[in-house]
């Protein structure tokens, strides 16, 4: 399925919920040049779950990872999916971006649609201090248990910048 067909399926099913879409064509290959596609979508937080539901129902996606960054007053989260795996040249990356306001860091979980999203959701939860509604497991994953740092958050890093000291003293070193 080519990117235009994928995008028109989204426009048809979700209409205005897709705020922005673009397709980037890249050419790969040395002996023979062929195109591959990166699809980028921007959706609102309230419609985000519906958009992923459509993706999961129609396109059997693979979720690679969720990336994120605080830009201005929002946490911008990019869900890096890909669709069309299993065929030679069949796959396109499919990134869904959604913005979460920094003073209301709530987002629906997509684990009900794609259980494999849990690791990445837990990681974003602790890195940005998000509240992921409906996540099956909301303990810290990569940070130590009980850690309240939010290292990727610029607004509220939970004291991460104070933790950057390089060395500690071993209490019995001089004995």
């Amino acid at each position: 399925m080519n990117p235009e067909q994928i995008l028109s399926s989204f426009r048809e099913a979700l209409g205005e919920k897709v705020l922005e879409d673009r397709t980037i064509e890249r050419s790969v290959g040395v002996l023979k040049s062929k195109p591959v596609y990166d699809i980028w979508l921007v959706v609102g937080r309230d419609d985000f779950h519906d958009v992923v539901a459509h993706l999961c129902a129609k396109f059997d996606p693979h979720l690679s990872v969720i990336s994120g960054e605080e830009i201005g007053n929002d946490v911008a989260l990019n869900y890096h999916f890909s669709t069309g795996w299993g065929e030679h040249y069949g796959e396109a990356t499919f990134t869904i971006r959604t913005l979460v306001p920094i003073d209301d860091r709530r987002l629906p979980s997509i684990c009900d649609l794609l259980p494999g999203a849990q690791t990445s959701e837990r990681e974003k939860r602790e890195f940005f201090g998000l509240e992921i509604e409906g996540i099956p497991d909301d303990r810290n994953i990569f940070l130590p248990e009980g850690s309240t740092l939010h290292p990727w958050s610029k607004e509220d890093d939970g004291g991460t910048s104070k933790e950057l000291k390089r060395l500690v003293k071993w209490e019995a070193r001089d004995e």
Binding site: V30, K34, V36, G84, G86, H88, E91
Partner: peptide, 22 residues
């Protein structure tokens, strides 16, 4: 049995010149 392989699905570098199968 899931035939996922980036080299096949979305080729890059020299893999794009080959017919790689997962």
């Amino acid at each position: 049995g899931v035939p996922k392989d980036v080299r096949q699905d979305m080729p890059y570098l020299a893999y794009a010149d080959m017919d790689i199968k997962a």
